[in-house]
């Protein structure tokens, strides 16, 4: 029997989304094949790797992950700058935890001012993340979108109950959004269809939600892999947006990550590589060592 390499070509491309503005803008997606399949297709944009910044002092963070940020946790602007200047982050994710209605319940205005300060202090793309509370998030992200007009932020999560408001304001002020539907291929598609009626698909990033190694990784891994497969093989253009995996926080909450630094880094990095293999185009990470490790791993020469 003669062997021929069983190549597969898919005649479509995942959409390419642009995050941020100017020289440091980052493109994600754009591939016409599965992750790491350089041998049979093109993957023009390496996965985006973001580091987290909180707008309030972190609570209950494990020592290992607090350590690198110890000197900056009280100020989101210094924190953001350290991530970029010292840890080489090419994307940041600012979490507006202060706005949590169950917590500090800070006003949208206050939060937006912080977001603006952070966005002004850095030149890399910024993801601005609410608390997942639909009503509050739509007010908070509306303020953020206005105050940071034209910066092409990535705003999220846009959920079933607030995507209209968030997408509308993002459209007016030139931002992209993350459409989030939890662990369900059909709900993801429904949300995209609804969004695409008035919002440009190339400004949407999908989030099917992600769980940590040992805490449901397999479910969320398979959903991402399935969405990517439907986009590439079934050519469903409502499933061809780049995919976000946001799991750094989940990983570092686990007792396994808290047990030792090495185990913590691996907990996060193994979760990360697993999602990259599923087809994620953008990862939100918590520890700078994880960022460095994954970056080196995926940028090695062939």
């Amino acid at each position: 029997m003669k062997y021929e390499a069983p190549l597969e070509k898919y005649p479509v491309n995942i959409r390419e989304a642009v995050l941020g503005k100017g020289e440091k803008a980052i493109k994600i997606g754009g591939e016409n094949t599965f992750p790491f399949h350089f041998f049979e297709g093109s993957l023009p944009d390496p996965p985006g790797l973001a580091l987290e910044v909180l707008d309030i002092q972190p609570e209950n963070w494990s020592h290992w992950v607090l350590e690198p940020f110890q000197d900056v946790v009280s100020d989101p602007v210094s924190w953001a700058k350290k991530c970029v200047d010292v840890f080489g982050a090419e994307i940041l994710c600012l979490r507006l935890l202060s706005t949590d209605p169950m917590g500090k319940d800070a006003s949208p205005k206050q939060a937006a001012v912080i977001a603006k300060k952070v966005a002004d202090a850095i030149d890399v793309p910024l993801i601005v993340w609410g608390t997942g509370t639909e009503e509050k998030d739509s007010r908070v992200l509306t303020e953020v979108a206005r105050l940071c007009s034209g910066k092409n932020l990535l705003l999220g999560p846009a959920l079933k109950g607030n995507y209209e408001e968030i997408a509308q304001i993002a459209l007016e002020h030139g931002h992209a959004i993350v459409a989030q539907a939890s662990m369900d291929v059909n709900l993801t598609k429904e949300l995209n269809i609804a969004l695409c009626k008035f919002f440009p698909p190339e400004k949407i990033v999908l989030d099917t939600t992600s769980s940590a190694l040992g805490y449901g990784l397999e479910y969320t891994f398979s959903i991402i892999e399935n969405v990517k497969q439907i986009g590439l093989i079934n050519r469903d253009n409502m499933m061809q947006m780049p995919i976000l995996a946001d799991f750094g926080g989940e990983c570092w909450r686990s007792k396994e990550a808290k047990e030792s630094k090495e185990q913590g880094i691996l907990w996060e990095a193994i979760t990360g590589i697993t999602f990259l293999l599923a087809g994620a185009n953008l990862l939100i990470l918590r520890h700078p060592d994880t960022l460095k490790l994954i970056k080196e791993m995926i940028s090695e020469k062939k």
Partner: peptide, 17 residues
């Protein structure tokens, strides 16, 4: 600390969906 995360990952990926 190197083996355990890998073993958990294997356990996850080979769970019958």
């Amino acid at each position: 600390h190197f083996l355990f995360p890998l073993l958990v990952q294997r356990f996850n990926i080979y769970t019958d969906p």
